[in-house]
Amino acid sequence: MKLIITDLTQFHIPIEGEYKLIHPRESIHHCVGCFGCWVKTPGVCVIHDGYENTGFDMGCCQDLILISQCCYGSVSPFVKMVQDRAISYIHPDFVLRKGEMHHKRRYKNVISLSAHFYGDPITDREKETARKLIAANADNYDGQVGQVCFYRSAKELEGITL
């Protein structure tokens, strides 16, 4: 299953195979750092606004695809808030990987993380930061990095197939 998290409200990108789309249909609350998704309702965010199950959805996917405006080399606030609210994908306990501390897995699936950033202009420096960010995300999800692509506009993305 492909899990697509995007800030696009109008989504016209063709997708092959089974997928779930998370996009801004309702307002999202930001993560408040309570760790309730680890110690109160493990696996589910305690803020019930329609975005509380992303950790579970991530546990069911093979491909996690972020489609987002590029903000300084980061994903946009909406996509980031969805990611921040989904830390229940991982377990609170620490493990060491590549000599650094990361979180243990909760789920067995290995995610391939891709990102499609749009924006004009996206500087070379922002592209470099974005690639580092996605690689760090993949490390923390204990997954793999897929494509990291950049587009001048969201419209340009309609020419690709996910």
Partner: peptide, 17 residues
């Protein structure tokens, strides 16, 4: 700020914009 998923927290990104 705290590090959130390897980057800045979503609410802070919104404020920076």
């Amino acid at each position: 700020c705290p590090l959130y998923v390897d980057g800045l927290p979503g609410h802070l990104l919104s404020c920076l914009l």
